[in-house]
Amino acid sequence: MINKRAGSVAAIFAASALLLGGCAANETGATDGGTTDDSSSLTGTLVGAGASSQQSAQEAWVAAFQGTNPEVTVEYDPSGSGAGRDTFIAGGAAFAGSDRAFNDEEVAAGEFGACVPEAGIVEIPAYVSPIAVIFNLEGVDSLNLDAATIAGIFAGTITNWNDEAIASQNEDAELPDLAITPVHRADDSGTTENFTGYLFEAAGEVWTEEPDGVWPFESGEAAQGTSGVVDAVTNGTGTIGYADASRAGDLGTVAVKVGEEYVPFSPEAAAAIVDASAFVEGRGEGDLAIELDRATDASGVYPVVLVSYLIACVEYQEAADAELVKAYFEYIISEEGQQAAAEAAGSAPISDQLRERATAAVELIS
């Protein structure tokens, strides 16, 4: 998949500024997530890059962490999951945020620039959020759709809002005779990979493309990043897209059919599927990649979910990087850090069971 990633590492390095580099660089007073601690011995700059889905959470984490560690600057560039993984591989960031874990082939290659060769990586599912199917249709605030209908819309086989497949599930909705404009990510995106993973597993008879971070069709409208998709859906007519639920705003949203019920997105419903899923087998001690069961028919579960990872080295070439990453990750997975993300982004705090595994993983960083 590396050869399919949008953008180049060189373009990433040439970016004029990191979005969050200064958003809280000078916040040394009290914050919602912590208070000033002048006794903190941490100092330096910590650079991360990756998933735009984490943007709101990262803003909250950065502000709180810098509030308790006033001599530390955390810079996080929400350039997208694929770009973040590329940057981490190239050694341009000490950690990455990604809406998918590295796959087996990438892990086996062991090519991570900031890490001691073959030392391995830590991957922690620290940000759990539903992916909202968002739309802009005048007079309609919500819709009920099953997986096959969602797949047909995004595959381009269902092209009009008053199609019987949509109307039969929404008898009370006034659906116009209007063309549907599906909007997808233009960049290599973990959100796309999670979304297409749901379509492939839950509606494989309609969606035959393997899950991938790169959108498989040329039809529809492409937009860069989460913000681009939200803007395109908001500013269009008859548009539909997918985005981290924290960015849904006032757009219409879809309740997804699971079993015999339609389940709207919520942090609780998203968390339910994560705790019911297994870890990927054959990974290192600190690699907590999860194999999600997206075809479940369990009651109250929302299967269109994004599990976004924090990725770091088990062993860094620079001790300063290890110290800062370890401290930052410890804060993020703490109850305080998870609550800060929930308040800022509507994400689902990880369970105590997952926190125990994540804490052990972070302890490996050196």
Rank of each mutant, 00 (worst) to 15 (best):
T68R: 10
F112E: 07
E318D: 12
G259N: 06
A30H: 11
E335S: 01
E174S: 15
I180Y: 13
S266C: 03
Q58V: 13
D187V: 04
V233C: 00
F13W: 13
A341L: 01
S142A: 14
D244I: 03
E105Q: 15
L19W: 10
N103C: 14
A119I: 14
E335C: 02
E138A: 15
S227K: 11
G7Q: 07
R100I: 15
A322Y: 01
G197Y: 07
A155W: 05
A319T: 13
T43L: 12
R294F: 04
P303T: 08
A360V: 08
G238K: 05
G220R: 01
S266H: 00
A186H: 00
A147K: 03
I240D: 09
S351Y: 05
A60M: 01
E27M: 15
A232K: 05
A24P: 12
A344C: 00
P216V: 04
T253L: 03
G228I: 09
S81R: 07
E164R: 08
T35E: 12
G113P: 15
L324P: 02
V314D: 08
E138D: 15
A83P: 12
A278R: 12
A6E: 07
T157I: 05
P303N: 06
A245E: 09
A147P: 05
E335Y: 07
L46H: 05
P267F: 08
D321N: 10
Q353G: 06
S41T: 13
K326A: 07
T237A: 11
A167K: 04
G50I: 09
E205L: 08
D231H: 06
V254H: 06
F88L: 09
G84H: 05
Q317E: 15
F154S: 07
P216R: 01
T35C: 11
G97L: 10
S366R: 11
V122K: 01
G228D: 02
S79P: 15
A344F: 04
Q224W: 11
Q353D: 15
D146C: 02
D32V: 14
S347A: 03
G282P: 04
I311V: 13
R85E: 09
T208W: 01
I290C: 14
A96R: 09
I180R: 11
R100S: 15
M1T: 10
Y127R: 06
V116R: 10
S53H: 03
D287P: 05
Y316K: 03
Q58P: 14
D77T: 11
E205G: 12
S129G: 07
G284W: 10
I273H: 09
G300P: 07
Q338Y: 03
N144I: 12
